Simulated assay, not measured.
Amino acid sequence: MEGSSSESTTAPKELPSSSGSHKSSEAAANIGVAIRYWLELEPYPPGSARSLWLFVDDDWRHLDNPNVSIQVSVQEAFCECSQRLEVLVWYSGDAIKGLVVKTK
């Protein structure tokens, strides 16, 4: 439906510059580019959620219980052979609210 206010999308209407984080006017989340990652293969401590950790804006942020698709996409973005991808992260505090793997 064109022009419908009930349209939904998983992508931002406008991608922000990768030059740093800023507050989004539509949500209370910061946006930044991840420069390192750490994937827990087993949750620690036992009984806690298994998490994907991304280093964004000088701090570690986590996404609990990432699905296989997210894990593979993030790993490919950080692969030595991939100089063309980056991980853009929406976060609040140390919790990741959303992410996309995109071309640089």
Rank of each mutant, 00 (worst) to 15 (best):
W53H: 15
S6H: 14
V56W: 00
E2A: 05
L52N: 07
L41S: 07
Y37Q: 14
G3R: 07
I70G: 04
G3S: 03
S5Y: 03
S92C: 11
G20T: 15
L54E: 05
G98W: 02
E86V: 04
E80T: 02
L39K: 10
V101S: 01
L54G: 01
I31C: 04
R61N: 04
K102F: 06
G32Y: 03
Q83D: 14
V101L: 02
I31K: 13
S69N: 08
P66S: 07
Q75F: 04
L15F: 09
S73V: 00
G93Y: 05
W60M: 10
V56G: 03
F55G: 01
E42Q: 12
N30D: 10
K104L: 14
Y44R: 13
G20I: 13
S8C: 04
S17L: 15
G3A: 06
S82I: 00
V101T: 12
K23R: 13
I35R: 10
I31Q: 04
T10R: 06
P46D: 08
P12G: 08
V72E: 11
A11N: 00
G47W: 09
E86I: 04
G93A: 09
K104T: 07
Y44L: 09
P66T: 05
A34P: 04
E40D: 14
L15D: 01
D64S: 07
L85T: 09
S48W: 05
P12R: 03
A29H: 06
I96W: 05
S21V: 12
Y37N: 10
K104Y: 03
E42V: 09
D59N: 08
I96T: 07
Y44I: 10
A28P: 11
H22K: 06
C79R: 04
E76T: 04
G47Y: 13
I96M: 10
W90Q: 12
P43T: 05
P43I: 01
S19I: 09
G32M: 00
E26V: 02
S5I: 09
D64Y: 05
L99P: 08
N65K: 13
S17Q: 14
E2I: 14
W60Y: 10
K102Q: 12
V89C: 05
V87H: 07
R84W: 01
E26P: 00
V33A: 11
S6G: 03
